[in-house]
Each structure stands twice: as C-alpha cells, then as structure tokens.
C-alpha cells in the first residue's frame, strides 16, 4: 500500500493540471477575500461573525480545490486512458482507490492549510488597510487553520469517490463546483437548519468559519468533523464499488 501511495503522490506532482491547481486556488482565495473586505462596510467588518465569514473563505475554497484534486486524480486517468496501465499494475481496484484517497487527502491537507493561511493573511492585511481591528482570538486562528486543513483533506476523499462514480472529468468538476459554490451556499441561506448538515457546511463548522448570512447556527466543530468523516467514507466506498464493478474498455 505504501508503494501505491507513493505512486499516486508521484502522479499528482508530475502533471501540468495538478500543478496548476494551487495557482488557481491562490488566485480565487485572494479575489474572494478582497471582494469581501472591500464590499462590506467598516461597521460590519468590525464584528467577529463577519470576520469569521471573510477569513473562513479559505476553508470553502480550500475544500473545493481539494475535492477537485481528488476528482482529477481518478477522472484524469479515465480521460487519458492511464487507468488501463494503472489497473494492469494493480488489478485490485479498491487498492488503487484507497491509494488515491490517501494521496489526495495528503495533498488536500496542504491545499486547505495554504488556502486558509492565505485567506487569514489577506483578510488581516485588508482589515488593517480599512482601519478595522481584527476581533478574532488566537484560538479562532488555530481552528481556522487546523479545521481548514482537515476539512479540505476529507473533501479530497469525497472528491475522489465522486470522481470514481461520475468518471467524466468535466461532469465531476462542474458538479463539485456547483454543489459547493451554488447549491450549498444558497441552501445555507434559506434552510440552514437542514443545510448545516451538508458536507460543505460541515467543513465550515470544523473550521469555525461562518459561511453565509444567517448561518450562525453551524454545527459544533466535532460534529462537523464526524459528519465529514462519514461523507468521506461513503464517497470512498461508493467510488470503490462503482470502479470495481464497471468494465474498463
């Protein structure tokens, strides 16, 4: 298993697409955070809830890109046909999925940490420019960084599982983007009592990030973490079953 994990890590760091992923993520984090820092009034920005929302965008974007990393790790192989040599080398396909989940979670952890650290740095700088005092405690920062990293790692597993089920690269990427950026954000605004159990909101809860207006009733961090582990396990199992049952033509 260790050799397979290393093989998957090597694959991830040796393609153009995978190397571009962090660059896109950095761009998106900076853009989103700056839009919020510029868009909110100085009064709003002064409150801890708003600041958690702005700082917390790192978790949301980090989770999204970690999910994309996971999804690309399998759909890229299907798209380019490398899935054939991969399964010839390791015919027990659930082992390949397990190695991909582990490698993507590892990469996702790094992406989540990078995204949240960047969000925190840009937010702090932006607030300073607008003359707003940062109301977050050291504990808040620790939770944002650790929760953002762990949440993204688990989202990478979700992305891998979904990629293995969907198989189509564009479908998986668009689906994940729409789910996290459109569906969950609108659900959390309208029916937060239910939507707080969704996987994106669970990652937000884990990091203590408030993701949208009216969503002050996020789950407790531990419950968010637990739910996210359940989602990641379900997605991994579904992906493993789907990829094992289907013929590779």
């Amino acid at each position: 298993m260790k050799a397979l994990f290393r093989a998957e890590l090597l694959k991830q760091r040796t393609t153009r697409t995978m190397l571009q992923l962090p660059l896109w993520m950095v761009g998106l984090v900076v853009l989103v955070v700056l839009l919020h820092v510029v868009g909110f009034s100085v009064h709003d920005l002064g409150s801890r809830d708003y600041q958690l929302k702005v700082f917390g965008w790192g978790t949301g974007v980090g989770s999204l890109f970690a999910a994309l990393l996971g999804a690309l790790s399998i759909t890229g192989e299907i798209r380019h046909g490398t899935i054939r040599p991969t399964f010839l080398a390791t015919p027990r396909r659930e082992r390949v999925i397990a190695a991909k989940v582990a490698a993507s979670a590892f990469g996702g952890l790094a992406l989540g940490l990078l995204a949240e650290a960047l969000a925190a740095a840009v937010s702090s700088a932006g607030l300073a420019v607008r003359g707003v005092h940062v109301a977050l405690s050291g504990g808040d920062f620790v939770q944002l960084l650790a929760g953002g990293a762990v949440g993204a790692a688990l989202w990478a597993a979700i992305g891998t599982g979904i990629g293995a089920v969907v198989r189509n690269q564009v479908g998986a990427v668009v689906g994940l983007c729409v789910w996290l950026l459109v569906i969950e954000t609108s659900l959390i605004g309208s029916v937060s009592s239910v939507a707080k159990f969704a996987p994106g909101a669970s990652a937000g809860a884990l990091a203590g990030a408030i993701q949208a207006q009216g969503a002050t009733n996020l789950l407790a961090p531990a419950l968010g973490a637990l739910l996210l582990v359940v989602y990641a396990s379900l997605a991994t199992a579904a992906g493993s079953i789907a990829i094992t049952r289907r013929d590779v033509t």
């Binding site: 040796t14 697409t17 192989e77 046909g81 054939r84």
Partner: peptide
C-alpha cells in the same frame, strides 16, 4: 492495449 494511454502533461 492502446497507443496513447498517457497523460499528455507528464
């Protein structure tokens, strides 16, 4: 099996 089972960016 196929002549092109490679990631073009690797």
């Amino acid at each position: 099996l196929e002549s092109d089972d490679f990631d073009p960016g690797r």
